[in-house]
Design a protein around this nucleic acid. Structure first.
Length: 360
DNA sequence: GCAATTTGACCCCC
DNA sequence: GGGGGTCAAATTGC
């Protein structure tokens, strides 16, 4: 029925095909020079598809039945649970116990962490800087030393109900108030939503409101500057993103020619699985990321700051983690070593710059 | 009434 | 000891 394809493989193929379709459409758009919004949508689709595909490759490691979960993600909060049992009994029962809390704290430190820099776009204005499609609940806010704007802390709404320990921190950039630095920690294990399923009640919109409100109190001048920029946005101007490349970290520029704004910086990654990701994979795909539910154009490049100092390239999209993890949960073997399928078989244009050198 | 947000306090780590 | 992160009671909004 499925020709022997695993679920991951089919998903991967589907994502690649979809990405290719988007690319073809984009090519047509580029030649006919339509609106930039259409391009953005297409680009977003392309990158989303590749992102998912890559993560399938990346996260599609051996299942817990065959290998420790640690090798899958290094994310203790994975619903797979450390011992692979379907329930995290200890985890839930132990809340409140000091030792358990300490363990949780340690585990949190081991969570993969990456930063997504999102710029407010002309389309979105102040309404929503970055709706990643997940349902977040704000649980704290802090004034950070040396930072103009406070940092907001979010966790997954389904933390208690589905033991989803994904969190994120949102902080408005001092240098550019139109840029939000969103630091994700952990991956979604709830599977309740994802980038492709925009959350209608995004808490970030409220956070945006709040941040804007706070900016009124914090820095009047900066706010003026921000509003000035926003008014420019609204006037149809796009902020030149070239200066984003001048960030303290060396970013690899995104190779898609028409992409414009956005950054994703992976700051920390402890997952041992990531070492399996061949850098050539990303070299060929370029380091691209679009938050699929973020219509604003955004381009990102990737920076690796691994504790081990190794060149572990990785692309993260929490939603995709959710997908991958849930996928892994329902499967027994990783597809990653069985990717010897023909691209022609799935209709992928051989001319498309798809480097398969990473495949075994 | 319920869910989300706010905010002061607490905890942990450097 | 201080800063960052989280908790949880109070508050707010729907």
């Amino acid at each position: 029925m499925d020709g022997g394809w695993s679920f991951e493989q089919k998903t991967l193929i589907s994502e690649l095909i979809q990405g290719m379709e988007f690319a073809k459409q984009l090519r047509g758009h580029l030649t006919s020079a339509p609106s930039t919004e259409a391009r953005d949508v297409l680009m977003q689709g392309i990158l989303s598809s590749y992102e998912k595909a890559l993560l399938i490759l990346q996260w599609g490691g051996p299942m817990p039945q065959s290998q420790p979960v640690v090798a899958v993600s290094g994310i203790p909060e994975s619903p797979l649970s450390v011992n692979g049992s379907p329930q995290s009994d200890e985890f839930e029962k132990g809340i409140g116990d000091h030792q358990q809390n300490r363990d949780i704290s340690k585990k949190r430190k081991l969570m993969p962490k990456w930063t997504d820099q999102v710029r407010i776009s002309s389309e979105n204005g102040l309404e929503g800087p970055h709706d990643d499609g997940y349902s977040w609940r704000k649980y704290g806010q802090k004034d950070i030393l040396g930072a103009t704007y406070p940092r907001s802390y979010y966790r997954c709404t389904y933390r208690n109900t589905q033991n989803c320990w994904a969190t994120k921190q949102v902080q408005r950039s001092d240098e550019d108030p139109t840029v939000f630095e969103i630091t994700y920690r952990g991956t979604h294990t709830c599977g309740n939503s994802g980038p492709s399923v925009p959350s209608p009640a995004s808490s970030e919109k409220q956070e945006q409101k709040q941040i804007n409100h706070q900016s009124n109190h914090h820095q009047h001048l900066q706010q003026q500057q921000s509003q000035e920029m926003l008014s420019k946005f609204r006037a149809g101007l796009r902020v030149d993103t070239n200066n984003l490349d001048n960030n303290e970290t060396a970013y690899r520029p995104f190779s898609f020619p028409s992409a414009s704004v956005g950054l994703l910086q992976i700051e920390h990654c402890n997952s041992s699985t990531l070492t399996n990701v061949n850098s050539s994979l990303f070299g060929s795909f370029s380091s691209t990321f679009f938050s699929p539910s973020t219509p604003e154009s955004c381009y990102f490049s990737m920076h690796q700051a691994n504790d081990l100092g190794q060149a572990h390239n990785m692309q993260h999209l929490e939603s995709d983690h959710t997908e991958i993890i849930s996928t892994n949960t329902s499967s027994t073997n990783s597809p990653i070593m069985d990717l010897e399928f023909s691209l022609d078989q799935v209709g992928i244009d051989p001319n498309f710059p798809f480097d398969t050198s990473f495949l075994p």
